[in-house]
Amino acid sequence: MHNLSATTALGGTEPRTEQRGPITLNEEPGYALASVAARKGGERATVLAIQRIIGAAAPKPNHAAGNTVTAFWTGPEQWMLEAPYDSHETLFAMARAEVKGKASITEQTSGWCRFDLRGVGLGAVLERLCPINMTKFQPGDATRTSIDHLGCFVICRALDHISILGPRSSAASLHHGLLTSMRSAY
């Protein structure tokens, strides 16, 4: 039963890495995800629970926050939690325990594939992908938008580091789109 081997969203056993000009693209499979949605009347408690989980104030709309465990805003009274899988395999259970019934938690690990772009000059890549105003996209900003017909979360970790989370089933299409933009820009 447990004799299973993990594959990444792109179908390999090792994450993919690509380089073009100053930009690196990494497949980042090692993250646990869980969504949090406040229940009616549980909004305040949910925000506090998220604060306890991520060690920072729950992010406001268009933002992400946290350190090891991070959260980004996904909708009114809704967030996504994200943490390294190796240390936080049970992120879902942990969150569920923390919100004490004041929020609905849903396991989302592997539901989203994650690609990270690193390097100076990410704007030129991103402006070929989505309508985010890159001159104003700062560390801590996070938003959901459409990239090549796919609804994706885009998170600015640092000026030279952006994560893109897309639907897992379309990982190959998304990866191809990101690579195409890198080639077009550099």
Binding site: K40, E107, Q108, S169
Partner: peptide, 12 residues
């Protein structure tokens, strides 16, 4: 005002 939360788990 119904207390309902929806999230797609098709991919998950």
């Amino acid at each position: 005002d119904l207390d309902v939360q929806l999230i797609s788990t098709t991919e998950a």
